[in-house]
Design a protein around this nucleic acid. Structure first.
Lengths: 190, 190
DNA sequence: CAGTTGTAGTTGAGCGCTCAACAAAGAGCT
DNA sequence: AGCTCTTTGTTGAGCGCTCAACTACAACTG
């Protein structure tokens, strides 16, 4: 049991060098502070967390300010659960309206309301200014370019293994201990 | 009302260019996925969130595995409140022990226990491997170097204005609306 | 067509974090 | 000494997120 890690167990772990450790710590610090900064900025000035902001942005850029819940979840890199909770809250605030899908009866659309549009319109300038001041004003053009490349490399490297599939893959190496409740024998109804 | 922002209101906001927006989005995606990845990795393999891991690391590297709560809070870039809650949980798990400070009677030490040391010792290889695979294996040496510089620039640019002081500064520009409950008239007791 | 498998979305419990309020003690001032 | 200001740490409420369970429908299969 406790299979989990495929590597990092039989061989001596590939520890980080001092330089790498320095880079990693600086990165963690920068990301942590930046996140805290933009988070409280948005919460304070616009009364919404950053995650909601990104949902509204995505919706506002969509053809008719409408999106399927699932697509919206993918676009914002959030779980369906998270998005569902989030949209529920934003619906209560009047920023988003839910609508049933006629062709696929389990589906739902999330619709940006005029009030939601106003909310993001009001939030955007302050947020963009905060991002510019914290990031782009601190970097040279060359560094900005590199940050883009670096981010893409990390993101693309993570894409294949990132979704919650993770440990589902580990089942491939012959471990039949699939006791994580996947194949749940739901007592069907109706 | 809705004063808040010092800049980004009288002038037209300095919107991001298309390139900058692309960089910013890739960065957000990378950070979001990376965070989710390491978070679930640690939670899954070691039963602790990343924040606790960093607390244990900081403690384990300290001279006698002891630190003042405040210093520990600063070192981990967390609020006193957060650390207090975290240490409470970790104390319940037997990873940390609290100890009163003899010279300053309001102070407290956080002490890493042997069990805590074992916990982080067990957690480290998997976590380091995840970080290496997600970050350093994806980047060239040059990119790693640049990531360090970029992170330092962002972090150092944020350091002055980052603490919760933020809006306390905005009171300097002549806005007397200090109704955010700062100067709280605590009813003394004895 | 029934039976199975996959997909879309919701729900509630539990957890970590934030925020404001608080208690207790040090530090400075008169 | 007494008074205020500051620092240290804790606490509880509220919130967003995760995780697992669940409903409901769609799509594939024999």
């Amino acid at each position: 049991m406790m299979v989990g890690m495929d590597e990092a167990r039989q061989h001596e772990p590939r520890w980080l060098s001092d330089d790498e450790q320095g880079v990693w710590r600086a990165f963690r610090q920068a990301v942590g502070m930046l996140n805290a900064h933009t988070e409280t900025q948005l919460q304070h000035d616009a009364g919404m967390p950053q995650a909601y902001y990104e949902v509204l942005v995505e919706l506002s850029e969509s053809p008719d300010q409408v999106m399927r819940m699932s697509d919206l979840a993918i676009a914002t890199r959030s779980s369906r659960s998270r998005l569902s909770h989030a949209v529920a809250k934003m619906e209560a605030k009047g920023w988003v309206r839910r609508e049933a899908c006629p062709t696929d009866k389990r589906g739902a659309f999330a619709h940006l309301t005029p009030a939601g549009f106003e909310a993001i319109k009001a939030a955007a300038p302050g947020h963009v200014e905060a991002v510019r001041a914290a990031v782009f004003d601190q970097l040279t053009a060359e560094q900005v370019r590199m940050l883009g490349e670096i981010s893409e490399a990390i993101r693309d490297g993570l894409r294949p293994r990132c979704p919650e599939v993770e440990r589902r893959l580990s089942a491939e190496d012959g471990d039949p201990a699939a006791e994580d409740g996947d194949g749940d024998d739901t007592g069907r109804a109706a």
